[in-house]
Structures are given as C-alpha cells and as structure tokens.
C-alpha cells in the first residue's frame, strides 16, 4: 500500500514498486504457509483478515478497509514522508 502510494506520489520508480510489491506478497504468502505449519492444521482463522461474507456484506468490508488504509496512508505521509517533520521526529526517523 505504501509502495504503491509513493509510486503515485512520484517518490518510487516503477521497477522498485514492482519488485517491492512482488516480494512483499511472496513474503506474506510464505508466512501464511509457515503459519499453517506452526499451527499444525489449516483450521484456523485470524480475526480481521478473514470475514464471513454471509454475516457482513461486501460493501461494509470495503468501507472498513478503505477507511483503515486511508488512515494508514494519511499517517505515513504526514509523519514518515513529510520533510517538515525533521525536527519533530528526526532522531526516530533516522536523521542525524
């Protein structure tokens, strides 16, 4: 999400975006397989990642995800990527 948003904000080049998104997805998928091994079976649910569509309509889930991602990007661009935060969050974000 952050990779794609920085791409649309012209902070990330296209090859970097493709590579990052590919490897993030691959990492997530391998983590899922490892999770299955560590849990011992496939019969587990992670609340929030799996939603029963018979109980919650798809539109509601879309609104929820949209708001959560909007908040994430709003905070990421406001805190992590804004050059004016150098003095406020400087040491925490890797400035000298």
């Amino acid at each position: 999400m952050i990779t794609m948003s920085t791409f649309t904000a012209r902070l990330t080049s296209f090859p970097r975006m493709v590579l990052y998104v590919t490897f993030q997805t691959a990492g997530g998928a391998i983590a899922g397989l490892l999770l299955r091994v560590s849990f011992g079976s496939r019969n587990f649910l992670t609340g929030g990642c799996s939603v029963d569509t018979t109980l919650v309509p798809t539109g509601d889930i879309f609104a929820l995800e949209f708001m959560a991602d909007f908040m994430l990007l709003f905070l990421a661009f406001g805190i992590g990527l804004d050059p004016r935060q150098r003095d406020t969050f400087g040491p925490a974000l890797g400035h000298s």
Partner: peptide, 10 residues
C-alpha cells in the same frame, strides 16, 4: 531513495 521513511528531503 526519496520514498523512504524519514522525510523525502534527507
């Protein structure tokens, strides 16, 4: 890298 954590001017 401009799109990294820590402000895009540093």
């Amino acid at each position: 890298f401009a799109g990294r954590l820590g402000g895009n001017q540093e």
